[in-house]
Nucleic acid binder design. Structure first.
Lengths: 292, 292
DNA sequence: CGCTTCCATGAGCGCCGTTCATGGAAGCGG
DNA sequence: CCGCTTCCATGAACGGCGCTCATGGAAGCG
């Protein structure tokens, strides 16, 4: 027998919340309905999907497979709905789930989403901020919790993940320092955890320039604020320096400057959906219209 | 509102059969049920999906999108079912739809499917034979009518198709000729339409050997039969020559022989399903265990 | 030993998708 | 022009599925 979309949403919610009752709350259902639903799904599949215990419900290995594929089914059904309506000349209405690291979310997304919303007022968004470490944003896409991941390129993922993507933005790093510093290069370097430290370190080495000391902060706005207060200088991507305070001076690093490239990853199925194509087009935006 | 799996199957059947009534027959439903179902689906999507006319029903552009994505949803739901059961230690039972060109279907599939069936008796197969011209077998996968396509590599497809694949078999061409011919190389060449003629032609040119005349046939078994009857010689892939008649002699072409490579293509979603992985493993089989 | 927080289960009910029966529209052949 | 056939549409009736409500059992916790 077929599983219904409602049943798949129940599986998803139970996994997310960790219990039947909490899932019921988020789905605006009774706990009883969730229990019945899971039980029915298990009967249809002939397999136990959750280990029920005192602390709620944990998916079995079989349950994890079901949840993972179920998210794919749900997403594809929404693509079907949105795409079909768009093909019929209707409005494009769907919810795009974007996983980005903080600086991209702050700098890249707002203008793109503004333009996209102007064009398609019925679009809505879930932007989740993910620390760009480990699998990072891409994991969100692989596990079906997001439709599009903003990543730093080059991105290394096992090929089996089967994601597709492209380039969005390629920009140089610039030097920022307090406005009234006589010799900015003698100031301590403030580094940024999510930065591609490896690249900037390599560049420093080519410059025979070893900064005196290194402060490490976890957030780029905190970093900007520190520079504004005269704590040191920093090497940051151009767009990060764009919305600087007046007390901060930006100095280009010339043609040999290290660069960072931001790209996106998504699943092939989603990459063909109208909404996601439009989103990627806007993300590429007026900045760097590149093929990809 | 959600579309149900039953509704998606109705869309698929209507497109395949070209009429509501015929779809009803293949689905073992009433014509009325099909009419109600399509109407309800259209209401849920807010869009007309089929143009009804005297000659049946043809999908609108919106309908085509819905049908295409619908096939993806249905396939993914079956992957969910089969994969979940397999993860729970149950048997692997699903239907694998394979699109292959004739010679691959005849030579590559039987041993692989034999071994796979021995391992998983509940698996079943739909093998469709597609002329390896134009989009060929890959189109079947792109349009959701097949799960795996057997292709000749290198394969050229628009990247937007978003398929993934790998190599299955790499083999040299060999020369076959009638057993009692004194000078096989003076015989007329019999060529084969689905053969990679370009490659063999190029090879002939490097050999400074221009065969006297060329017969062109559309089927490899007919070709073998012609050689057996003394009509000429041919250059064919090694496996094609494997099940030859006793009147046919095989002569290797040495290390510079032209080669052909057979590969597979599938969608990324399916490539992660247990059943398809097993099938690909068996297709690679004991012949050429390669990474890919 | 209550209290709380989990999940399970049975009864009842409404809606959705089915069949049955019927009707309308549009070629096709005398 | 008129049946005949072959399409799809529609309304009535019904059965099952998935929901809520009410209740019960199990297991930590102070």
């Amino acid at each position: 027998m077929d599983l219904t979309a409602a049943e798949l949403r129940v599986l998803d919610a139970v996994e997310r919340t960790g219990s039947f009752s909490a899932a019921a709350t988020t789905l605006d259902l009774t706990q009883s309905a969730v229990s019945h639903s899971v039980r029915m799904t298990e009967r249809k599949l002939g397999t136990v999907l959750f280990d029920r215990g005192r602390h709620g419900a944990r998916p079995t290995p079989a349950g994890e497979r079901a949840i993972l594929h179920g998210r794919g089914v749900l997403r594809l059904m929404d693509v079907l709905r949105a795409d079909t309506r768009a093909a019929a000349g209707g409005v494009l209405d769907t919810r795009l789930r974007i996983a980005a690291f903080r600086s991209a979310a702050a700098q890249l997304l707002p203008p793109a989403l503004t333009r996209l919303t102007a064009k398609h007022p019925q679009l809505s968004y879930d932007v989740s901020i993910v620390r760009d470490v480990g699998g990072g944003t891409a994991t969100e896409v692989v596990e079906g919790r997001a439709d599009l991941a903003i990543v730093n390129l080059p991105h290394r993922l096992p090929a089996s993940a089967g994601l597709v993507g492209g380039e969005l933005l390629d920009e140089p790093y610039v030097l920022i320092h307090p406005a009234r510093s006589a010799d900015p290069r003698s100031l301590p370097l403030i580094d940024w955890t999510e930065n591609c430290s490896a690249e900037t370190q390599a560049w420093f080495r080519t410059q025979d320039w070893l900064p005196p000391a290194t402060i490490n902060v976890a957030d780029d706005t905190v970093l900007l604020s520190m520079v504004a207060h005269g704590l040191g200088m920093a090497v940051v991507p151009e767009t990060t320096a764009a919305d600087r305070a007046p007390e901060v001076t930006v100095e280009p690093l010339g043609p040999t400057a290290p660069r960072r490239t931001i790209g996106y990853l998504t699943t092939p199925a989603l990459s063909r959906s109208t909404a996601l194509r439009e989103l990627v087009a806007e993300l590429r935006g007026p900045r760097a219209p590149r093929a990809g």
